[in-house]
Design a protein around this nucleic acid. Structure first.
Length: 316
RNA sequence: GGCGCGGUAGCCAAGUGGUAAGGCGAGGGUCUGCAAAACCCUUAUACAUCGGUUCGAUUCCGAUCCGCGCCU
């Protein structure tokens, strides 16, 4: 059977609980693939696995970066590869679990070798963009890298800036970096399982989860403490932070805060699904409403066994 | 009961005597170092009802219904 398996799905679909059951059955350790659970001091906001779950199964890449500093797909990749190799070298399996599509892609397909973000150049380009507009920068990109430009929308300031950044840093267009084979971690060796639920049910779960976070888990207090810190730019993007901050400042009622936050997360879940749908060779399972985590885990085991057989057949 | 204001798509909301912006939502998509981000596409024979004026009314007039506010 495959030694590296990934379990992905939208937020609130029930990944963490299912992952623990599945990891137990597989004899695997869990490697998180979540851009927010990597940070410390925000376990509620990021809905990280519970202490009990982490005692049951060893989890990695959770609770390991201060919220004042910044993680990125590249940094995540750099941290994670050795950990996976280490686990495998001990004869255990790896279960990658998470909802951050880009991080999973970085892990399974690698990133190109272009240099990481350069804060100074990026800020310069960004302020320039705000002055003259993204179309201007896009035209410049068109001049130096028409291939990249053809794949980036003129309104997509972020990617235009990244492309120009790489060009400024290396003198080579970003598309030429794309062409270079990146160091793949485990080419073709990862079985990806996607879990999903009926859309209405998923949205209802999201709505309930946020209420639970507010009324049972005490997110508001967690946010209050976080706000005392000089949070990194990435951390400031966590869903709920800005909403609760507005509530704490008295500008917004609790009711409106919750509604805005719920809406944000529902939209996010949809985007996650869009991402995972295009993941090559992903195996989906639609979870029925009353199915228990351990039942789902059993179904997933079947799927994994099947997928492994197919891979073996394909190779011989 | 009287007076005033309002009734435009699932919601909010512009507007015009020649059949009507936009936003939200919803659905789909893109994604190579901020990704819980950013960006793109699609979406509705929607003008409360009935009459009248008019070549033509969502727009003007009248009545009716509903909502809101004020007055009695």
């Amino acid at each position: 059977m495959q030694r590296v398996i990934a379990l992905v799905g939208p937020t609130a679909v029930g990944k963490s609980a299912i992952a623990v059951e599945l990891a137990q059955a597989l004899g695997a350790e869990i490697v998180s693939c979540d851009s927010m659970q990597v940070y410390r001091q925000m376990p509620i906001l990021s809905q990280a696995p519970t202490h009990a779950q982490r005692v049951q199964i060893q989890h990695h890449l959770i609770d390991c970066i201060e919220p004042t500093s910044m993680c990125s797909a590249g940094q995540y990749h750099k941290m994670t590869v050795p950990i996976i190799q280490h686990i495998l070298s001990h004869g255990k399996r790896v279960l990658i679990v998470g909802g951050t599509g880009l991080y999973l892609k970085a892990l399974t397909q690698g990133l190109c070798d272009a240099p990481p973000a350069d804060v100074r150049i990026r800020e310069q380009l960004w302020s320039e963009c705000q002055g003259v507009g993204s179309k201007q920068l896009y035209n410049r990109l068109l001049g130096v890298d028409s291939l990249a430009a053809s794949r980036i929308h003129p309104n997509d300031a972020r990617r235009i800036i990244r492309a120009l950044e790489v060009y400024a840093l290396t003198g080579k267009p970003i598309s030429s970096w794309w062409r270079q084979a990146s160091a793949e971690l485990l080419p073709g060796h990862v079985t990806v399982i996607g879990i999903d639920r009926d859309r209405d049910e998923l949205y209802a779960r999201i709505d309930e989860r946020l209420l639970h976070m507010i009324y049972e888990q005490g997110v508001i207090n967690e946010v209050r403490n976080l706000l005392k810190l000089p949070l990194s730019r990435t951390v400031r993007q966590v869903h709920g932070l800005a909403d609760i901050e507005a509530y704490l400042s008295g500008r917004v009622s609790l009711k409106d805060t919750i509604q805005a936050w719920q809406q944000r997360v529902r939209n996010y879940a949809k985007r996650q699904l869009t991402w995972f749908r295009q993941t090559p060779n992903i195996h989906w399972r639609l979870i029925p409403a009353e199915e228990h985590a351990w039942e789902t885990a059993e179904h997933l085991l079947d799927i994994i066994r099947h997928a492994s057989l197919q891979t073996v057949e394909a190779r011989s």
